[in-house]
Amino acid sequence: MNDPDIFEFCLYVADDTVNSSCALANLRAICSRYLPERHKIELVDVFKEPGRALEDRIFMTPTLVKLTPGRVARIVGTLSQTSLVLEALGLEGVAA
């Protein structure tokens, strides 16, 4: 059962390459600041699980997929532009 308030993310990375590492760090920072206690992050390494990436139709890394709440959203890149990320996640209101 999915809690409606919990943000579930799936981050697709390529080992510990620069952009992937950067995306993971940024995602963690955003979650701890805007979604404390309200998020779950699943990490998928496309080198280790190439089938999974194909299934999920992920063609580039790093790619962040927001599964819940609301509509599924995809963001490609290092997630370094926080305001854009928040907008994509539907959290622009909280970014005061």
Partner: peptide, 22 residues
């Protein structure tokens, strides 16, 4: 296209391409 923010790209068969530098 990816503004250097992407490490890999894969084709529709799932074959991973490595970008330069990676």
């Amino acid at each position: 296209l990816t503004a250097g923010e992407v490490d890999t790209a894969a084709d529709s068969d799932g074959r991973v391409l490595l970008l330069r530098g990676t």
